[in-house]
Simulated scan of single mutants.
Amino acid sequence: MKQNFTVRQGALDGVEAFLSVAQHRSFRRAAAELGVTPSAISQAVRTLEARVGAALFLRTTRSVGLTEAGERFLARARPAFEELVAASGAARELGQRPAGLLRLTVPRSVVPILLEPLVASFCQAFPEIEVELAASEELVDLAAGGFDAGIRMGQFISPDMVAVRLTKALPFVIVGSPTYLAGRGRPQRPDDLRQHACLRLRRSSGALASWSVNDNGRSIEIAVSGPFIANDFPTLVGAAVEGVGLAQVPGPLAADAMRSGKLVPVLEQFVPMTPGVFLYYPGHRQIMPKLRAFIDHVKGRSGGSS
């Protein structure tokens, strides 16, 4: 397919040679500065003049001067070229040391239990890196969203991503408030869940997630019903604390409420395990130092491995 470029291909060729000659008023000294032969500098300038469509230098056997066209070209080319050099230097710097903005997409449930302490220690260790967390339950396209990496439960990560473990495998607990259980009774078998008010999760795809239990090593999906639906686990935990119904959530999210007695685990022998939480990023992308620093920090803090 034909490409349409704002700047013609090769339009910058010869500009550095022109600027050096203009500065030194000498093809020989420009050649020495750039480490090439005078004839190479002369050829580069002639090619540039042909492309521009005007003579840029007045040449005599004793001196080199700028034409009016050369003066105008110099006035605009010099600051533009200096900006290009500066831009290259800035990009190179980010490619060589941990610095800049690190953007991560994460589910809201992960922030308080994992990322808050991890990000705090990372920011202290790498003060030149700014960390931006975009909390969303949606599985966003990292490249389209401008994210360096994402964090998700392992079962939701595409197999073409490189994954770095942040946590061990997590239990997917079923919990209810003492008030709810006093009124409805404790379920004794997974089938009993069909008679309970079960709080449900709506996935980013729009589908309602079924509940999962482990019956002697056999994974069973149960279609439950209940009066409340949310699109994130922390909201389900809050509703369960208020006695709205039973909730199935990652264990760490309900840990504080269980320790304080606000929630009680049920069907403990049937609780399934999830793969855990992972940092993920595209495998084909060059890893910038800021992301590499975060990955190494994660591994150092969690003992995780890719």
Rank of each mutant, 00 (worst) to 15 (best):
R59G: 02
V85L: 14
V249Y: 06
A31I: 07
P127T: 15
G304Q: 02
A30F: 00
R218D: 01
F233T: 03
G70I: 02
Q188D: 12
A257P: 03
A90Q: 05
T235S: 14
A134P: 01
V237A: 04
R292G: 01
R59A: 02
T179M: 05
R29C: 00
H284P: 00
F270S: 09
A209T: 06
V162G: 00
F5H: 15
P190A: 14
E138Q: 13
S109L: 10
R202C: 05
F18L: 07
L267T: 09
G261K: 13
L84Q: 12
A99G: 01
G14W: 04
E132M: 15
S305Q: 12
A75P: 03
N4E: 10
V52Q: 10
D192S: 13
I295D: 01
F57N: 07
R189H: 15
K299E: 07
P289S: 12
E268I: 13
T179F: 02
R92N: 02
D256G: 06
M161W: 04
Q96P: 00
K290D: 03
G238N: 10
L201S: 13
E221I: 02
L102W: 05
V244C: 00
A30G: 01
D13R: 15
G95P: 00
G206E: 08
P275H: 06
G65N: 10
V64G: 08
D215H: 13
K168M: 02
L139C: 03
V244A: 09
F5S: 13
M288A: 15
A293R: 09
L291C: 05
S121P: 01
G10H: 12
S302Y: 00
F5T: 14
R165Q: 04
V237D: 03
R194Q: 15
F18I: 11
G146P: 08
G261C: 11
S39P: 01
L66P: 06
S158P: 00
A240I: 01
E130A: 14
E16P: 03
A230P: 07
L19P: 04
F81P: 01
E130I: 11
P227W: 06
P275Q: 08
D160A: 10
G154C: 06
G276F: 00
A143F: 07
A293G: 07
D160C: 06
K2I: 10
G226Y: 05
I41E: 05
S225T: 14
L115V: 05
A69R: 07
G217H: 12
H196W: 04
P289M: 09
L48D: 11
K168S: 08
K2F: 11
G300P: 03
S204D: 13
L291V: 08
Q195D: 15
P107L: 08
R301Y: 00
A135F: 07
I222C: 08
H297P: 02
F5A: 14
R78C: 02
A247S: 10
G238C: 05
E221H: 12
P127C: 15
E221V: 10
Q96C: 03
I229L: 14
P98R: 14
G145E: 03
A75F: 06
I222M: 11
D232A: 07
R8A: 15
A255W: 11
A75W: 07
A87Q: 12
R51Q: 10
L246T: 04
A32L: 10
E242Y: 01
V140D: 02
P265H: 09
G10C: 09
Y281P: 01
S210W: 04
